Computed example of a mutant assay.
Amino acid sequence: MQNVKKRLQDGFKQPRQDLVLCSVCKGRAVVKGVFYELVCTDCNGSGWVIEGSRLVLPLEELVTQLSFKLQQAQKQIEALKRPAKAVGPQRQYQVSNRLGAGATNYTGD
């Protein structure tokens, strides 16, 4: 028998589409009418269109694509919140090595 390795097919993955702000409403989802604001018809009231083609996504797909965009933004926020790890000589001053008098930090200065 042949040993076949199972793998996830591309058909099971949801394709990621690059979204850009609607050029008509500038991402606000509404345009100014004479007396009140109207829903933007170019982006179907979402404020987002597909990059390059400027096509409108159906609502079911738009929710998924916006969720992908939100997850990506949250990852970037978390990465920026983490403190940067010191490298090189400054690392001695930030991490206690307990080699000094009374188990304090010894830097060799």
Rank of each mutant, 00 (worst) to 15 (best):
Q2T: 11
Q2V: 11
N3K: 11
V4C: 11
K5P: 06
K5F: 10
K6Q: 07
R7E: 15
L8W: 09
L8Y: 10
L8I: 15
Q9P: 15
G11T: 15
F12Y: 15
Q17P: 09
D18L: 15
D18A: 15
D18W: 15
L21W: 11
L21R: 12
C22D: 08
V24G: 06
V24T: 14
C25N: 06
G27P: 14
R28F: 06
V30F: 06
V30P: 03
V30T: 09
V31P: 04
F35A: 12
F35P: 09
F35R: 14
Y36Q: 14
E37R: 00
L38F: 09
V39K: 06
V39D: 04
T41N: 14
T41F: 14
D42T: 14
D42C: 10
D42K: 12
C43P: 05
N44A: 06
N44P: 04
G45K: 00
G45T: 02
W48M: 14
V49P: 10
V49W: 08
I50Q: 11
I50Y: 05
E51C: 14
E51M: 15
E51R: 15
E51A: 15
G52K: 05
G52Q: 04
G52F: 01
G52I: 01
L55R: 07
L55C: 10
V56G: 11
V56Q: 13
L59F: 01
L59P: 09
E60I: 11
E60H: 09
E61N: 13
E61Y: 10
E61L: 13
L62V: 02
L62Q: 07
L62P: 05
V63S: 05
Q65P: 02
Q65D: 03
Q65A: 00
Q65R: 00
S67P: 08
F68D: 01
F68W: 06
K69P: 03
K69F: 03
K69V: 07
L70Y: 03
Q71R: 05
Q71A: 04
Q71M: 05
Q72W: 03
A73V: 00
Q74T: 00
Q74C: 00
K75P: 01
K75M: 04
Q76S: 03
E78A: 01
L80V: 04
K81Q: 07
R82H: 02
P83H: 00
A84G: 04
A86D: 05
A86H: 04
G88H: 04
P89L: 12
P89H: 09
P89C: 10
Q92G: 10
Q92S: 11
Y93Q: 13
Q94K: 06
Q94H: 03
V95T: 02
S96T: 09
S96G: 07
R98Y: 14
R98N: 13
L99G: 08
G100N: 07
A101F: 12
G102T: 12
T104K: 10
T104C: 10
Y106D: 12
Y106T: 07
T107D: 11
G108V: 10
D109N: 10
